[in-house]
């Protein structure tokens, strides 16, 4: 069966997120992607706001939180970790956790945090 012909019959907009329970290779709709991107843009704007406005003691925690949220959405949705095989998440999280672990210990041993 030629996939070309098949695909030609499929209207651009028809392919929708509602099908993604069928199998995990179905991706969310474009609208969802745009929505996420708008969210990410807003968060970025707030991040930049910390440069102009004094967030006081919340400065670092809020930045880290926003960074985490952005990270989460890009990995979860744009990279489809939320929909794809959990094994991918494991590989990636393994790298992240390991990196965080060894490097935080290394920086602690170098007394980095004392100087901050």
């Amino acid at each position: 069966m030629s996939s070309e012909t098949l695909s030609d019959t499929v209207e651009a907009g028809m392919h929708d997120a509602d099908h993604h329970d069928a199998d995990h290779h179905h991706h969310p709709s474009d609208r969802k992607y745009v929505g996420i991107a708008i969210g990410l843009a807003i968060i970025t704007a707030v991040e930049v706001l910390t440069f102009y406005v004094d967030f006081g003691p919340l400065f670092i925690p809020s930045l880290l939180l926003m960074m985490f949220v952005k990270f989460y959405y890009v990995c979860g949705w744009f990279m489809h970790l939320k929909l794809d095989s959990p094994m991918f998440t494991k590989f990636f999280v393994a790298g992240l956790v390991l990196a965080a672990g060894v490097y935080v210990v290394m920086l602690s041993a170098s007394q980095l945090w004392d100087n901050i």
Binding site: A12, A41, F51, K70
Partner: peptide
Amino acid sequence: SVSSFVLLMSSLTMVLALSAITRGD
């Protein structure tokens, strides 16, 4: 901030490309 924003939006266009090709567009 502007260039970060540009890169962030390139992620959006990237998923749109993927979604277009899965549709065969």
